[in-house]
């Protein structure tokens, strides 16, 4: 199949259908609306269901129902809408069902603004909803990854029977790039656990699995420990000899990559760790980096978010600084300068 030019949100939507997604329930909000728009036309073509829900609350719960019935199901939102999804995500995790939730991040708390941001990091990685659960959080940094990671998200959601989140942002979602779309897959909804009537067997109860699992605390901890151990994804760029290593995901990581090249051209040993999964945070990326003098996180947010996980990952052996882009995407040269300043400080 040839490369084609596509918008991030469209590539993600098309890849979701090819990954077997057959249900979308959601509500419009910029900058994710291209996802429901695309799927409203595309899902019916493949025998799937698109339903514009009356709210995000309804949307995530329709997804809960469709997922319980065994179908690959998805919703997407942004900002305030992502907040409204959280109770439902907690229920889906608690019932150990697969589902994919896309958050195309926008800037600000409250109503905020439609421009790109990375402020929902905690909400996505540290729970968001109530109780003891985690979602695998994938952070695409390109249109190609928007397509690839949604397929991965559906597969992992089913493997672990746990919701997965795609944490995108307005710029990755809106940019147009060449993309190689995944192959179309078949669907397999008649899983043993899927509710579809008991058909002569035992009746099934989709609810918090804690009611039916012995030693649930240990069971669920083990589940998330296993995910944390097995599912870390990241890309390392010139970390092997770096003095300062940038840590950034999504749109910020692209600027950071430029900064690394620019710095290297000037003889400055800058590196980059680009988490592809935000939960589990790729702590393994930080092993063997004893030569690194400092880390610097780069995020599009007004308050630091990522630096907490980086501090934990490097066990505070070296300083962890942050660079906050706020509402605007910084120029790579500004990041290089900030990194040089940190380096000077360390000498």
């Amino acid at each position: 199949m040839p490369l084609q030019l596509m918008k991030g949100n469209h590539a993600l939507s098309e890849a979701a259908v090819r990954a077997g997604c057959r249900f979308f329930g959601g509500y419009p909000i910029t900058p994710q609306s291209e996802i429901p728009e695309y799927l409203s036309a595309r899902l019916p073509q493949s025998g799937g269901i698109f339903l514009q829900a009356e709210s995000e609350l309804a949307g995530i719960n329709m997804v809960y129902g469709a997922a319980a019935a065994g179908f690959r199901a998805m919703t997407s939102s942004s900002g305030p809408g992502f907040s409204l999804l959280q109770e439902g995500i907690s229920y889906i995790a608690s019932a150990e069902l697969p589902a994919v939730i896309v958050d195309v991040q926008r800037y600000g708390s409250g109503l905020g603004d439609i421009s790109q941001a990375q402020s929902d990091y905690f909400q996505a990685t540290k729970g968001g909803g109530h109780g003891d659960y985690k979602c695998i959080v994938f952070a695409p940094a390109s249109v190609q990854e928007s397509a690839d990671l949604v397929v991965e998200a559906f597969d992992k959601a089913e493997e672990y029977r746990n919701p997965c989140i795609i944490l995108s942002d307005a710029s990755i979602a809106q940019m147009v790039e060449p993309v190689l779309l995944p192959e179309e897959r078949g669907i397999d909804p008649d899983k043993a656990w899927a509710v579809r009537g008991k058909h002569g067997g035992e009746f099934k109860r989709v609810t918090s699995t804690m009611y039916y699992i012995e030693d649930f605390d240990a069971y669920i901890k083990n589940k998330y420990d296993t995910m944390a151990h097995n599912e870390q994804r990241w890309e390392s760029v010139h970390t092997e000899d770096a003095d300062v290593v940038l840590v950034a995901y999504g749109i910020s990581s692209r600027i950071c990559k430029e900064a690394v090249s620019e710095a290297r051209a000037q003889g400055i040993r800058l590196g980059l760790i680009r988490p592809i999964t935000l939960w589990p945070f790729p702590v393994n990326a930080f092993s063997g980096l004893e030569h690194v003098k400092a880390f610097m996180t780069v995020e599009l947010s007004a308050l630091p978010r990522l630096d907490e996980d980086v501090k934990l990952a490097c066990e505070m052996r070296v300083p962890v600084r942050h660079f906050l882009g706020g509402v605007s995407i910084p120029d790579s040269s500004v990041i290089t300068e900030a990194a040089i300043a940190i380096l000077k400080e360390q000498r």
Binding site: L57, N61, Y64, G65, Y91, G197, F203, K204, V206, T207
Partner: peptide, 15 residues
């Protein structure tokens, strides 16, 4: 004894 889904409070219709 039928197949059940426990809906969040208020969301049974959507589920």
């Amino acid at each position: 004894g039928v197949d059940w889904i426990q809906a969040p409070h208020g969301r049974a219709a959507a589920v």
